[in-house]
Computed example of a mutant assay.
Amino acid sequence: MIYKGLQGVTTALAMIGKLGSSAAFSIIYVFSAELFPTVVRNAGIGASSCCARIGVMAAPYIVDSTKMIKSDFGQSVPLVVFGAASVFAGLLSLLLPETLGQHLPETLEDGKLFGT
Results as ranks from 00 to 15, higher is better:
57 M>Y: 11
55 G>L: 04
71 S>Y: 11
57 M>G: 09
73 F>D: 11
90 G>A: 09
80 V>W: 09
62 I>N: 00
59 A>L: 05
52 A>L: 14
98 E>Q: 08
97 P>K: 12
60 P>T: 03
55 G>Y: 04
72 D>Y: 00
97 P>E: 12
95 L>R: 13
98 E>M: 08
58 A>C: 10
52 A>F: 11
57 M>T: 12
95 L>G: 08
74 G>C: 12
96 L>G: 05
77 V>K: 02
64 D>C: 01
54 I>L: 08
75 Q>K: 00
51 C>S: 15
74 G>R: 00
51 C>G: 09
72 D>P: 04
84 A>I: 15
87 V>A: 13
84 A>H: 11
72 D>Q: 05
49 S>W: 03
99 T>R: 00
72 D>V: 07
61 Y>F: 15
75 Q>T: 02
88 F>V: 13
62 I>R: 00
80 V>G: 02
99 T>Y: 00
56 V>F: 02
95 L>V: 13
96 L>H: 01
62 I>H: 00
90 G>R: 03
50 C>I: 13
74 G>I: 09
61 Y>C: 11
63 V>F: 00
97 P>Y: 09
91 L>F: 13
82 F>A: 10
76 S>M: 11
85 A>P: 05
70 K>Y: 02
51 C>E: 10
68 M>F: 07
49 S>N: 13
73 F>S: 03
93 S>M: 15
56 V>Y: 02
59 A>R: 02
54 I>D: 04
88 F>E: 05
74 G>P: 00
75 Q>I: 03
98 E>F: 01
94 L>K: 08
75 Q>G: 01
87 V>H: 09
89 A>W: 11
72 D>H: 02
82 F>M: 15
79 L>F: 15
70 K>V: 10
92 L>Y: 08
67 K>N: 10
58 A>P: 08
80 V>F: 07
99 T>V: 07
86 S>W: 11
94 L>W: 03
81 V>A: 08
86 S>D: 08
89 A>R: 12
95 L>Y: 14
85 A>I: 12
86 S>M: 13
99 T>F: 01
92 L>M: 15
57 M>Q: 04
98 E>H: 02
51 C>F: 14
95 L>F: 11
76 S>G: 06
64 D>E: 02
66 T>Y: 00
99 T>P: 00
83 G>P: 13
48 S>Y: 13
80 V>P: 10
62 I>D: 05
56 V>E: 03
53 R>T: 14
70 K>L: 06
97 P>S: 12
56 V>W: 03
73 F>T: 06
81 V>F: 01
64 D>V: 02
63 V>H: 00
95 L>S: 09
93 S>C: 14
61 Y>N: 11
76 S>T: 13
90 G>T: 06
90 G>C: 09
68 M>H: 10
92 L>T: 13
84 A>R: 14
67 K>I: 13
52 A>P: 05
71 S>C: 07
83 G>S: 12
